[in-house]
Amino acid sequence: MENSIIKIENLIYEYVKQEVLDDGSTVEKVKRALNGISLDIEKGSFLAVVGQNGSGKSTLAKNINGLLLPTRGKITVKGVELADDERIWDIRQNVAMVFQNPDNQLVASIVEDDVAFGPENLGVPSEVIRQRVDDALKLVGMYEMRNKAPHLLSGGQKQRIAIAGALAMDPDIIVFDEPTAMLDPKGRKEVMAIINKLHEEGKTIILITHFMEEAVQADRVVILKKGSGILLDGSPKEVFCQSETLRDVDLTPPLAVELGDRLRARGMDIPQDITRIEELVEYLCQLK
């Protein structure tokens, strides 16, 4: 790909798990979480990675910025290979992460100090940190709350602080590891709105999620299957119309696809590639 920012080649990741046998002895069992993933991620794109728990989607996210190191295979970020120990901090600065639990990723007891944590670690000069913290907090709409204690904020607000903390490191790529899984619908919408905004501003977004309505907002969707790597890869339209394949991995296709399938089964002529409610409505109107 011309404009590739992340290149993943045949990535294999294995966990070693200690298991206690009945007689009390322990054996080491190797579990393969990722089985030969190859992905080229374009600069400025918005990629959604979808899969059930155990499909390795979180493991993939953690491999992209070196929190976990591949058992085999190769990952390069902006041309730098991840195995390169000397450059690991450059890569982490460039590939920021936002995690699932809004509580467990905030370090400081004051909002702005937390947002400053990343750039502080990078040794950024104080005046520049101040500027970045203010910009990041304004972008996520939490500037007014900069002197508050995180534990007094809602889940959605905490997650916005975590996003500001990632942004303050001035990354090109942000990986979101199920950022909305623990939020209520309101918090979920707030976070998705910010993700879309960051995408518009040119950041490369990787969103790990199991909510279809979130994946639909991306411009590319990858479906992972436990043990066998990438199952589907394409635009949301190309992926979500494959309802059978989705059901095979226990993912629920969007309503328009589901209803389209049922009507087609009754003999109606509904095109396969209708994935959104609006499209189905429009098509039915024409048919009438």
Partner: peptide
């Protein structure tokens, strides 16, 4: 979780850290 998040935010000990304040 926190250790993971701190590492992702480039925490590598006290050396070379700057401060917001």
């Amino acid at each position: 979780d926190l250790a993971m998040a701190m590492e992702a935010r480039c925490y590598k000990g006290g050396e070379g850290r700057t401060r917001l304040h």
